[in-house]
Deep mutational scan, measured.
Amino acid sequence: IRCIGVSNRDFVEGMSGGTWVDVVLEHGGCVTVMAQDKPTVDIELVTTTVSNMAEVRSYCYEASISDMASDSRCPTQGEAYLDKQSDTQYVCKRTLVDRGWGNGCGLFGKGSLVTCAKFTCSKKMTGKSIQPENLEYRIMLSVHGSQHSGMIVNDTGYETDENRAKVEVTPNSPRAEATLGGFGSLGLDCEPRTGLDFSDLYYLTMNNKHWLVHKEWFHDIPLPWHAGADTGTPHWNNKEALVEFKDAHAKRQTVVVLGSQEGAVHTALAGALEAEMDGAKGKLFSGHLKCRLKMDKLRLKGVSYSLCTAAFTFTKVPAETLHGTVTVEVQYAGTDGPCKIPVQMAVDMQTLTPVGRLITANPVITESTENSKMMLELDPPFGDSYIVIGVGDKKITHHWHRSGSTIGKAFEATVRGAKRMAVLGDTAWDFGSVGGVFNSLGKGIHQIFGAAFKSLFGGMSWFSQILIGTLLVWLGLNTKNGSISLTCLALGGVMIFLSTAVSA
């Protein structure tokens, strides 16, 4: 259960009878995928790494000078000259100064003066180019299975845990398959586009800190620079940016070097996208990844198990997540596992009318040892309800109150669905055939309105939902006002479609 501690969480529900669903994975976010007769899966884009970055340009932001020398000439005696002028490691300046009897010249006039100092770069920052084909995306998957609280967001041991898996995709191999043991396998067909235009970005490294910066900004930095990788004795261009020549006297000129420019660069980098280094690879934390999940090989585990009949206890007080759902960790005293956990939410304890829904599909106890633990997640209705676990006299209950409203949740879900469709863009549509167009249209309606429909009408039977949709269509056909007619027709059509397409 990876997503319960992530604030940016998206719930995606598969269409009834569908074998695939489109998701948008982004750094700092987590996606929970639910479908009829399929286990619930949490998917998170953990890291995006980039390798084989080529150094484009380096800037010196802290330097020192040494070996200063000057040469001067009297008027009419030609130009002052130093051998160091031809050495690229030196920074030199030529000027004219007033000369006369007082400073060793027989004539009054302008004399030539040249001053040089050896330039040494102490600290530099480097910009590297990123090729999209060198990106690698690491995705962690977790099935809502027989897990306890100690396994949440624990990325170790996934090789031997059938509840978890790690997959890596690249532009050259965008397809992967996550093996989930008894739950089958989940196929991923990803489109490795981060949403960032790397043709316009460089990877900047300064003092063990890293950013993504725009090329134009990078090339306009007014500091000494050299092109390409460091060859040991780089040729620094624009050395004068960190060196200041003071007022010249008759035979000498003082040279000083400016202080470190790291603070000024940090100020200019305010708002830039931060990154990290992992050995020789860069780690990015921006952008998104679009994936199509193929769920035809994914299956529920323990459908044929019998119900657990022994007593359950709450190991922890049920807690609310950031998303309005409830996490419950229970301990089973029996030894008759594997068995299914009898769990439901009810409005009252007399009729036990089921409300809400299970995020953890078909929760089971897989071990036959005593005191096995299991964590599950529920989506309670707004208002008061009861969490009921167990059967008969051994069942345990917990009162729950959820604040908020169904309308607010439906609106929030619609906005999130619209954002998801905007990110998917043209990849969500198939114009290759008439059937493809209608299929894409259905998927689009489901992406945007599916979660809201589930919130508003999830407790009704599909037949009642179709009746309401048919009534809206009838009202649309018999209303003389054009805008009201079109609105009723659209709402009725969407409702009829979703009542037959969205899983219960």
Rank of each mutant, 00 (worst) to 15 (best):
A501I: 09
D67Q: 08
D22R: 01
W217M: 11
A117G: 15
T194K: 15
I407V: 11
V167W: 12
E44P: 02
H144Q: 10
T76V: 06
E62A: 13
T427E: 02
V33W: 06
A270N: 13
K394M: 10
G157Q: 09
A69N: 05
Q77W: 10
A319G: 01
V31Y: 03
H323Q: 13
H219R: 10
C291Y: 11
A178L: 14
V317F: 15
G145L: 03
Q350H: 13
T325S: 15
V213S: 03
T353E: 00
T325N: 05
V317N: 13
V388S: 15
V423T: 06
G392W: 12
M495R: 00
A268I: 11
S304Q: 03
T360M: 09
V6F: 11
G390V: 03
V41D: 05
K395Q: 06
L322Q: 11
Q253S: 14
D384K: 12
I484V: 15
G390R: 10
E329R: 02
G157E: 15
H214I: 06
A490L: 13
A270F: 12
V23K: 06
P192K: 06
Y59E: 07
C190P: 04
L456A: 03
V12F: 06
R57Y: 06
V303T: 14
T19A: 13
M53V: 05
P75D: 10
R73T: 08
V502S: 04
L424A: 03
Y59G: 02
S66P: 09
I221Y: 03
V434H: 12
S405G: 10
Y305G: 01
V114T: 13
A63R: 04
T321L: 02
F497R: 03
M34C: 09
D220Y: 08
L113D: 03
F449M: 12
R402E: 04
N163P: 13
S403K: 00
P75W: 11
S51N: 09
L96K: 07
L258G: 02
M421S: 01
L467P: 11
R73F: 08
L204D: 09
T205H: 15
M140R: 04
C92M: 12
R99W: 12
W101E: 07
D336M: 13
P39A: 01
E276R: 00
C30N: 07
Q344T: 11
L269E: 08
S112N: 12
F245S: 10
N237W: 15
D336K: 13
A69T: 13
G102W: 07
S260L: 07
K124H: 15
V56A: 12
Y59I: 05
A501S: 15
I65P: 03
D87S: 15
F285R: 01
P224N: 08
I139H: 03
S66A: 15
G432S: 15
V56H: 03
T414H: 05
K84V: 11
W20H: 05
R193P: 01
S199A: 15
R73C: 12
M460L: 11
Y81G: 14
D37L: 12
R164F: 03
A275R: 00
S185L: 13
N154W: 08
S64G: 10
V23D: 09
V257C: 14
G404Y: 08
E377K: 11
K239Q: 13
K409M: 11
V391D: 05
G408P: 08
T414I: 11
H266C: 13
M68I: 15
T335M: 13
G334V: 02
K93N: 09
K419Y: 06
G482P: 12
V91I: 15
M345L: 15
V256S: 03
T397L: 14
A69C: 14
D37F: 07
D10Y: 02
E320M: 08
L113M: 15
E370Q: 05
S372F: 01
R2A: 03
Q350S: 02
L322P: 12
G102F: 06
E62F: 13
G442T: 09
L242R: 01
V143R: 00
A35Y: 06
D189K: 06
S16Q: 03
H288P: 00
N439Q: 10
V167E: 04
V330D: 07
F411D: 10
I445A: 04
F411W: 10
R57E: 07
F108W: 10
